[in-house]
Computed example of a mutant assay.
Amino acid sequence: MRPNYHREGLFDENKVSEKPKPHSNPITQLWHVNGKCPEGTIPIRRTKEQDVLRASSVKRYGRKKHRAIPQPRSADPDLINESGHQHAIAYVEGDKYYGAKATINVWEPKIQQPNEFSLSQLWILGGSFGEDLNSIEAGWQQVSPDLYGDNNTRLFTYWTSDAYQATGCYNLLCSGFIQINSEIAMGASISPVSAYRNSQYDISILVWKDPKEGHWWMQFGNDYVLGYWPSFLFSYLADSASMIEWGGEVVNSEPDGHHTSTQMGSGRFPEEGFGKSSYFRNIQVVDGSNNLKAPKGLGTFTEQSNCYDVQTGSNGDWGHYFYYGGPGKNPNCP
């Protein structure tokens, strides 16, 4: 099927002209060098025996661990230590949201431990931060070999309707997300990626709710409508989202209060700016009239700003944007 109502952005992506500007060459996926899928089929990353054996259990294969959502309203140090997840995000809450969009700078951060990851994504959230949390997530992730068997930067999606307990998974590893596109593969490597003081590459992701059918659709770039999450998967998101988040997340698995050196974004702090630090630009939300709007009341949140930080801004070319990330372990973040 196709969405009944297709969203168009407020910003013309071809007019982004901040100097220095992002590299204009298109991002592709590495599997494209081997051909394309025939009409009427979709690409699915093959699950091999080694993939399943790397998981902690067959039941947990393709699933996130609990407490993977940043909670700006309750930055409880005990919760932070328990979760092991750290974030640097921008967010909006207090209204009904029907989607979100962002253009996300793509990097290849270094991962320290075998069970850690670094990702940059948007979250579309409904319900409380308890066991009934609904979440739709999309972006890029640089994962230790635990999930994919290599260290490539990959496009990914995730969903859950019960705070990661029994529902949801990455990409197409369980029933849920219905893909309709034959050219983009979920979980496949992205190429090229940005380099420090060199060419910058970014991807655009839009998720919006079809006002007629109620499904949540995902678009990659300006040309690829990838598929949808059916509304029946969710309770709160069957109506609308109550919070949107954009930003980075890492897992810190170091024991005894020590900090991982796993990088977020480019591994550089926000104040270093373009070409050095990682960014989200043209961040927008979808309102009740199915229009893309600039976010109002944009807040920021990070658990430990001396490890990973976030700084927002706005201008005519990039709309609302922010730089984010950091190196993790450093003299101020031991």
Results as ranks from 00 to 15, higher is better:
Asn4Glu: 11
Tyr5Met: 08
Tyr5Leu: 09
Glu8Ile: 12
Leu10Gly: 15
Phe11Met: 02
Lys15Pro: 11
Lys19Gly: 01
His23Lys: 08
Pro26Asp: 08
Ile27Ala: 02
Leu30Asn: 15
Leu30Asp: 15
Val33Cys: 04
Asn34Lys: 15
Gly35Ile: 14
Ile42Met: 06
Ile42Leu: 03
Lys48Cys: 09
Val52Ile: 15
Arg54Gln: 10
Ala55Lys: 06
Arg60Trp: 02
Arg60Pro: 00
Gly62Leu: 01
Arg63Pro: 01
Arg63Asp: 05
Lys65Ala: 10
Arg67Val: 09
Arg67Thr: 09
Gln71Asn: 15
Gln71Tyr: 10
Ser74Val: 05
Asp78Gln: 10
Leu79Lys: 14
Gly84Lys: 01
His85Ile: 04
Ala88Met: 04
Ile89Ser: 02
Val92Gly: 02
Glu93His: 11
Tyr97His: 02
Tyr98Pro: 05
Gly99Tyr: 09
Ala102Met: 14
Asn105Ala: 04
Gln112Asn: 13
Gln113Ala: 13
Asn115Ile: 08
Asn115Ala: 11
Leu119His: 01
Ser120Cys: 06
Gln121Glu: 13
Gln121Val: 11
Leu125Cys: 11
Leu125Pro: 06
Ser128His: 12
Phe129Asn: 12
Phe129Leu: 02
Gly130Gln: 11
Asp132Arg: 12
Ser135Leu: 13
Trp140Val: 00
Gln142Tyr: 09
Val143Leu: 08
Asp150Ser: 14
Asp150Glu: 06
Asn151Thr: 14
Asn152Phe: 15
Thr153Cys: 05
Arg154Cys: 08
Thr157Arg: 07
Tyr158Phe: 13
Trp159Gln: 03
Trp159Val: 01
Tyr164Cys: 03
Tyr164Trp: 12
Ala166Val: 06
Thr167Lys: 04
Asn171Val: 06
Leu173Ile: 04
Gln179Gly: 00
Ile180Pro: 01
Ile180Leu: 11
Asn181Leu: 00
Ser182Cys: 03
Ser182His: 14
Ile184Gln: 06
Ala185Phe: 10
Met186Trp: 09
Pro192Phe: 10
Val193Cys: 00
Tyr201Ala: 07
Asp202Phe: 12
Ile205Phe: 07
Lys209Trp: 06
Met218Asn: 04
Tyr224Asn: 14
Val225Asn: 10
Leu226Trp: 00
Gly227Leu: 01
Ser231Leu: 10
Phe232Asp: 10
Leu233Cys: 05
Leu233Ile: 12
Ser235Leu: 05
Ser235Asp: 13
Tyr236Pro: 04
Tyr236Ser: 15
Ser242Gly: 14
Trp246Phe: 15
Gly247Arg: 04
Val251Gln: 02
Ser253Phe: 03
Asp256Leu: 04
His258Ile: 00
His259Cys: 03
Met264Asp: 03
Gly267Asn: 06
Gly275His: 09
Tyr279Arg: 07
Phe280Gln: 08
Leu292Ala: 05
Pro295Gly: 10
Pro295Asn: 09
Gly297Ala: 02
Gly297Thr: 05
Gly297His: 13
Phe301Cys: 08
Phe301Asn: 07
Glu303Thr: 02
Gln304His: 09
Gln304Lys: 06
Cys307Ala: 07
Tyr308Phe: 11
Gln311Cys: 08
Gln311Ile: 14
Thr312Ser: 11
Thr312Leu: 07
Thr312Trp: 07
Gly319Cys: 05
Gly319Trp: 13
Tyr321His: 13
Tyr324Asp: 05
Gly325Thr: 04
Gly328Val: 13
Gly328Phe: 01
Asn330Asp: 14
Pro331Gly: 04
Cys333Arg: 01
Cys333Ser: 06
Pro334Glu: 10
